[in-house]
Nucleic acid binder design. Structure first.
Length: 503
RNA sequence: GGUUUCCUGGCCGAGCGGUUAGGCACAGCUCUGCAAAAGCUGCUACAGCGGUUCGAAUCCGCUGGAAACCUCCA
């Protein structure tokens, strides 16, 4: 197993540095990632986070870990500015049942995850499916004296918790309790709370609330952060390896999650907290609420004032992976254009690499300078992933490997420049990183087409070859231009003609 | 106002005290009927000012600029 020999370092929000990853149970990884709230179409920011964790998930699997990846669907519980339950608000606008709204956007989210080629999580629990678990957790917290009931609602007692567990509250967000107390003092209608920093773990329903459940305290609904605490505990245990989510969830969501878990079981939940950074548009955070967004659909169709053309889902995925997951990433047309070119080139390189013949010469232990260079690059790709999942470093290494591939294919290096066992290994490693770990698909090839397209292309290119043989440049160029017009690029190489789709 | 992060060449973006990151764009060359593709070479960097160090994009301080969080957001 690779994980036994490689040393993976992960940046842990709790410690503020990269720690060597040691799973709680050797060989197994438990990872919880906060999923989307399904009251709206998924936007690109969501996509970036889930693509990032998809690569993380894939790399753990590649290393040989058995991974239980839990990503929830939030279909209840978050309040809007005007105090309405989000699902209820959506339903009123659309004249639909709340669960109909949730279903619609859950399906849309799944479509988007599939289009971006993310692997499904092992478990995708819904908040509404875990109301009993959440009620139990509220009770546990009450039993431990860390919450109080007020008019049918239950509030978490932050000052008491913080006093009993020094250093815990604030450990995720880096917030200092005194500051927090001072800040929240100004906020509106907190009259039921003992203290402004307290937060609801069970809310008594008002007449307009639609999604409500019975509980020992009132007919109501669970607090805004409780679902993740309850579901992570249920599926991963009280203490598990990794909890992830977007940067903007650190406070209050993750901070309160830790407090609740701690409050219910007296132990810390996740050992490692991972946070992805924001996707920017116009140098500002993309956000559903302030309208600074570009939807995946707009990006894929080119129907947006922010872009000049359509970009394929794989180009978008590649674009995201060109940056480290903890860096902000600014969406611009220029950057997408660059990503598109880079993506196509790597796909082309992959096809070319796989087509290179490998000698059947037996391994004799020899190693030339090119062998060493390529071996170093392969190791650098691994080192990149081992260093907090640095996909940018992986892509750089793949590009450098690609240089060797093209040189050999173009006869600028002799066919035996690389020893067969090195070439063989590069074939495997290159595709492993590109497809299995980075999770890209080749949407520039004819792989998904029926044989008809290949047959037609062979015919057309054959006719062009005949025209060229007779120096009929007009006919030859007409074919080339016509193909170009429908998005097919003809590539005249030393070893004959190939073709590809311009993405 | 409080907390935190960031500022790299025309653009995107790695970098965590000593290496040419890489991609895109651009220029020249090779190849080509021409072009494209591909390869090679070149090309502009570390916001500013100080400090620590044999050595700093990388550590520290100050100044300037941007962003995030403090309220639902990935």
């Amino acid at each position: 197993m690779l994980h036994e020999t490689r040393k993976l370092r992960i940046y842990n929000t709790l410690t503020g540095k990269k720690d060597v990853f040691e799973p709680i149970t050797p060989g197994y990884v438990g990872m919880y990632v906060c999923g989307p709230t399904v009251y709206n179409d998924a936007h690109l920011g969501n996509c970036r986070t889930y693509v990032s964790f998809d690569v993380i998930h894939r790399y753990f699997r590649h290393l040989g870990y058995k991974v239980r990846y839990v990503r929830n669907i939030t279909d209840v519980g978050h309040l809007t500015d005007d105090g309405e339950d989000r699902m209820a608000k959506g339903s009123k606008l659309a004249q639909l049942e709340p669960m109909e709204v949730a279903q619609k956007y859950t399906l849309g989210f799944h479509d988007m995850m599939r289009i971006l080629n993310t692997l499904p999580p092992s478990i995708e629990p819904r908040a509404t499916g875990h109301i009993p678990e959440q009620i139990e957790m509220v009770q546990s917290i009450l039993d431990r004296g860390l919450a109080y009931e007020r008019n049918g609602s239950v509030y978490f007692n932050v000052p008491k918790f913080a006093g009993e567990n020094p250093g815990v509250y604030g450990s995720v967000s880096g917030r200092i309790l005194d500051d927090l107390y001072a800040e929240t003092r100004e906020l509106k209608n907190q009259d039921e709370k003992n203290h402004p920093a307290d937060f609801a773990i069970w809310m008594k329903a008002r007449p307009q609330d639609l999604m409500v459940w019975n509980s020992p305290w009132s007919v109501g609904f669970p607090g805004w952060h409780l679902e993740c605490s309850a579901m992570s505990t249920k599926y991963l245990g009280k203490t598990f390896d990794i909890h992830g989510g977007g940067n903007d969830l650190k406070f209050p969501h993750h901070e309160n999650e830790v407090a609740q878990n701690h409050g219910a079981c007296g132990c810390s939940p996740a050992r490692t907290w991972m946070h992805t950074n924001m996707l920017l548009l116009n140098n500002k955070k993309m956000s559903k609420s302030d309208g600074n967004t570009i939807s995946p659909a707009e990006l894929f169709s080119g129907n947006s004032p922010h872009t000049t053309k359509a970009y394929s889902p794989m180009v978008v995925r590649f674009f995201m992976l060109m940056a480290h997951y903890r860096s902000t990433l600014d969406i611009t047309d220029d950057a997408l254009l660059a990503a598109e070119k880079g993506y196509s080139k790597l796909m082309e390189t992959s096809r070319l690499l796989q087509s290179l013949p490998v000698d059947s010469k037996a391994f004799d232990g020899s190693e030339n300078e090119h062998d060493r260079a390529v071996s170093t690059l392969m190791e650098e790709a691994y080192k990149g992933m081992d260093d907090d999942f640095n996909t940018a470093v992986v892509i750089a290494a793949l590009n450098e490997m690609g240089s060797y591939v093209h040189k050999i294919a173009n006869k600028q290096l002799p066919a035996d420049a690389l020893s067969p066992w090195v070439l063989d290994r590069m074939k495997a490693i290159f595709n492993t990183f590109l497809f299995d770990i980075l999770g890209l698909l080749d949407d520039t090839s004819s792989a998904g087409d029926s044989g008809v397209v290949d047959g037609l292309m062979n015919l057309v290119l054959d006719m062009r070859a005949q025209a060229r043989a007779q120096k009929d440049w007009a006919a030859s160029d007409k074919i080339r231009d016509a193909l170009s017009a429908i998005g097919i690029q003809v590539k005249d190489g030393k070893e004959g003609v190939t073709w590809g789709r311009s993405v």
